[in-house]
Amino acid sequence: MIPSAIKNKQLLSFIYDGYSRTVEPHTYGVDTKGHPALRAYQVGGGSDSGEFTGWKIFHVTEMRNLASTPTHFSGPRQGYKRGDKAFAVIHAQL
């Protein structure tokens, strides 16, 4: 689901750390610590940090109720870096 959302530029929604999140997915793979992960730009929802929008990395195993939405985004956000160095393996990226 995550790779197709990246390819189709579809927003994803899920629960993470008890907060509903809506994100623009940009990079999916395995981070340098071995976790399946998603680099995304959060556009809605909550956060423990109090930062409700911005760049974040989410561990896929901690996402709950993951779903793609019918809403699309136009393309990479400012600050996006293809070949993200936080990932040891990249399965999908914009």
Results as ranks from 00 to 15, higher is better:
A86M: 08
D17F: 10
P36Q: 14
G18W: 07
F73A: 02
M1V: 10
R82Q: 13
T27P: 01
N8T: 14
Q10K: 12
A88M: 08
R82L: 11
I6N: 05
G50R: 05
N65P: 00
P36N: 12
D84N: 15
A86F: 05
A40V: 07
I2Y: 09
D31I: 10
M1Q: 13
H35E: 15
P25W: 05
G75E: 14
Y28E: 06
S49F: 06
V43S: 04
I6M: 01
G50S: 00
S74R: 12
D31K: 13
G50I: 07
S20K: 09
M1N: 15
V43E: 09
Y41L: 02
S13V: 13
Y80R: 03
T71N: 09
E24T: 04
I15V: 14
P25V: 07
T69P: 02
T22E: 11
A86P: 02
D17M: 14
T53S: 09
K85Q: 10
K81G: 09
G54Q: 09
K56Y: 15
T61I: 12
Y41E: 00
Y28R: 01
G45V: 02
A37T: 02
G45N: 02
D48V: 01
G50P: 00
G54D: 10
D17W: 11
D17Q: 15
F58R: 01
A5E: 08
R77W: 14
I90V: 08
P3Y: 14
L94F: 10
D17I: 12
A86G: 01
F52V: 12
P3C: 05
N8K: 14
E62P: 00
H72M: 05
H26T: 04
K7M: 10
H91V: 11
G44H: 05
T32S: 00
K9V: 03
G45T: 01
K56Q: 13
F14S: 04
Y16V: 09
Y16A: 03
E51F: 01
F58P: 00
M1R: 09
V60L: 13
T22R: 11
I2Q: 04
P76M: 08
H91C: 00
L12W: 05
F14M: 06
I2G: 03
K9R: 15
G75I: 14
L11F: 11
D31V: 08
H72R: 14
S74A: 15
K7I: 10
G29K: 03
A40Y: 06
I90E: 07
W55D: 06
L11M: 10
G83H: 00
K33L: 10
D48N: 08
G79N: 04
F58A: 07
K9W: 06
A92K: 01
G44A: 10
T32Q: 07
L94A: 13
N8L: 10
I2L: 09
T27F: 05
S20L: 09
G29F: 08
I2H: 09
G44T: 08
M1H: 13
K85F: 12
S4F: 09
H35F: 14
D17L: 15
V30N: 09
A92T: 03
A86H: 04
A37S: 15
H91I: 11
Q93G: 03
K56F: 11
R21N: 06
